[in-house]
């Protein structure tokens, strides 16, 4: 469960003051499949970064499970991210020198998981994203869609509480987009994995079970479909 209360975020470089978030209150329960939508500059990325502990709120609290991550130190946050949150970014998701298998394994290595567990889980996850025949390919030998699927598998590998994806399909063609969404949807249905993603894409919005619309740093609407 993610509980965001009274979160504001103001960027102030001394010259310009940008109020990227102005009082966000939202609760995301386990098992949700939630899209955050809104025009460019509305604060989607900022909100996801704050939920994911990549950025800290100016005011307010973000409670994940039992932990108020606004109170964690930088190093504690890194560990928290490793063990509780899965990330899928728009691009630069993978380590270019490693194969698909090694990329998926990577977080489990950081978690000091045993080799047997790593192998088993890597195989299972790559199969779940339909890449069992690509395990030894490097990122630059795969298509954009395949790379994003590896990223999803990698995000799942650390057994996170939920997965945050900031515009995961922005660089994909429609077939790859549909395919990636199918995989995410199935993982949500079958494994009860929580997904929170931002998007501009109407086809992606249509698949979401809950759509939170952000505008000007505020929640404009919050609809369960």
């Amino acid at each position: 469960m993610i509980k965001v209360t009274h979160v504001t975020k103001t960027y102030d470089d001394g010259k310009v003051r940008v109020e990227a978030l102005r009082g966000i209150n939202v609760e995301i329960k386990n098992g949700e499949f939630t899209a955050i939508v809104g025009p460019s500059g509305s604060g989607k990325t900022t909100l996801l970064n704050i939920i994911g502990g990549l950025d800290t709120p100016t005011e307010g609290n973000v409670i994940i499970g039992e932990t108020n991550i606004a109170l964690l130190s930088e190093n504690q946050l890194i560990d928290f991210r490793l063990n509780h949150i899965g990330f899928v970014f728009q691009s630069y998701n993978l380590i270019p020198v490693l194969t698909a298998k090694e990329n998926v394994e990577f977080l489990m290595l950081l978690q000091n998981k045993s080799e047997a567990e790593r192998d088993e889980r890597t195989t299972k996850l790559l199969k779940a994203v339909g890449l069992e025949d690509q395990i030894n390919k490097k990122p630059n030998e795969m298509s954009g869609g395949q790379q994003q699927r590896v990223a999803v598998a990698r995000a799942l590998a650390s057994k996170p509480d939920f997965i945050l994806a900031d515009e995961p399909t922005a660089n994909l063609d429609s077939a790859s987009t549909a395919n990636l969404l199918d995989i995410m949807y199935r993982l949500n249905q079958e494994e009860n994995m929580t997904f929170v993603f931002s998007t501009h894409d109407q086809r992606v919005i249509d698949r979401a079970k809950r759509v939170i619309t952000v505008e000007d740093g505020k929640i404009l609407s919050d609809i369960y479909t």
Partner: peptide, 12 residues
């Protein structure tokens, strides 16, 4: 890439 590594939980 380094930013990504830190983001997903590789410690400093």
């Amino acid at each position: 890439e380094l930013g990504m590594l830190i983001s997903v939980g590789m410690n400093k």
